[in-house]
Write a protein that binds this DNA or RNA. Structure first.
Lengths: 237, 237
DNA sequence: ACCTGAACACCGTTCAAGT
DNA sequence: ACCTGAACACCGTTCAAGT
């Protein structure tokens, strides 16, 4: 399979563990207590990062945390629950990215805010393709059972719809079913991100390095097509 | 996990096997020869249909074909190769669907033809969600190694781009980077289909039964936004 | 209260042996 | 030429036993 094992960066996630001398090797058997739950999530996060969601194995996470194969089940009912915890961590980072981008966007240009939400989402997906896979595939995680996931998703959706509603109010875009326009925007952005992570770009003439700009340009095409032609001043009916 | 095991219809795929009396139960051990390859693909196709790509197991396909666990490896180098054969079957059906829809679309309205390609793709994805998953996830199959998959994908892309080029030529849509507009259209349609199969619609206010119409309406929004405002006769620059 | 390690029912894949 | 069935190195998950 096409899993080339990505960049094994040392993710500075879950910072400030109880300091204990040297660079904490997961070999040590000083365990017997400690916060195994967090250690397992951190291990799973790195496994996802290294070679995708499919490579995450409860046993391997346990190995990296230095515990036996049965230990994780004292903290997670099953593999799905572990993956859901990974997804919550990822979704929280995505949410922050989008919120930060929105904070920088001009209050005065709602259509630009709409575009900005999409662009931030795309940037995050390109920067974190494997984590993006985890949050987007409902068969891997228990989305409905997670307040964090449902909440963050709801928040992203609201940001998109609010920006769009404001743009309609200011007549920057034509009137039209708000929810459907938001859905189309969301589908476009999600589709671009998924084409990227699912490896479709080579077949669509997008060079390996040029994904990011191509995605933003495709987004621009949509937003600009939505933008109301200034020459027609009134709603068409 | 959320795999409720779909509708186990008797797919009349791989028709006209060597007739042999009663309804061919895969129990029989009359094997020892026969076209195991086709039988394995048929079994895998049904497994995908019943409960998604992840439920496909080389061993289970072998069981259903009535052979031992090692037998499939005489016909497929690995599980990926079996899944690729499944994807080729699915992609061929998708291609036919789109081609048929294009044959019915008016030669005179290229933008409608562009929309029609997307709509046919969406209809097929909704009707065959699990098979759609197989053809779209490059981690499950060897896309690059399959002439059938690359060819069909290329053909779909060409249909989209040709319709769009003709629409630009007739000034039905504004000029603009053809490839990027095609990419945006493709991403929108792919995104809608993936949101459907990935189970996102409940969180986006789309009712269970209303997926198909909502998807087509979202597609309409894009196509109509692209449609050139008749009041502005000349390209903007 | 938390962890170990054997056990169970699975996988994908290989390979000597059979027909 | 094709298929069997044991074997190997894995999984997820359970559970009695240990500390």
């Amino acid at each position: 399979m096409a899993l080339k094992s990505g960049k094994p960066r040392t993710t500075p996630r879950t910072p400030g563990r109880t300091a204990r001398g040297a660079a904490a090797r997961p070999r040590r058997r000083n365990y017997h207590h400690g916060n195994l739950r967090e250690a397992l999530i951190a291990a799973a996060l790195r496994l996802v990062e290294e070679s995708g969601p499919h490579s995450v194995t409860v046993r391997e996470a346990a190995r990296r945390a230095g515990v036996s194969s049965g230990a994780p089940f004292r903290h997670f009912p099953d593999r799905t629950a572990l993956m859901t915890a990974v997804a919550e961590d990822a979704m929280t980072r995505l949410r922050h990215e989008v919120v930060a981008s929105l904070a920088r966007a001009p209050e005065s240009d709602p259509l630009e805010r709409f575009r900005g939400v999409g662009a931030a989402y795309l940037r995050w997906a390109v920067a974190n393709p494997t984590h993006f896979q985890v949050i987007s595939d409902r068969r891997l995680i228990d989305f409905d059972g997670s307040d964090v996931l449902r909440g963050a998703n709801e928040e992203l959706r609201t940001m998109l719809e609010d920006a769009l509603a404001e743009a309609q109010r200011r007549q920057l875009v034509d009137r039209g079913d708000l929810l459907l326009v938001a859905l189309a925007g969301r589908a476009l952005v999600y589709g671009l991100a998924r084409m990227y992570v699912d490896g479709h770009f080579p077949q669509w003439g997008v060079a390996a390095g040029g994904a990011q700009p191509a995605m933003e340009e495709a987004l621009d095409i949509f937003v600009n097509a939505l933008r109301r032609n200034p020459r027609s001043a009134k709603p068409s009916r």
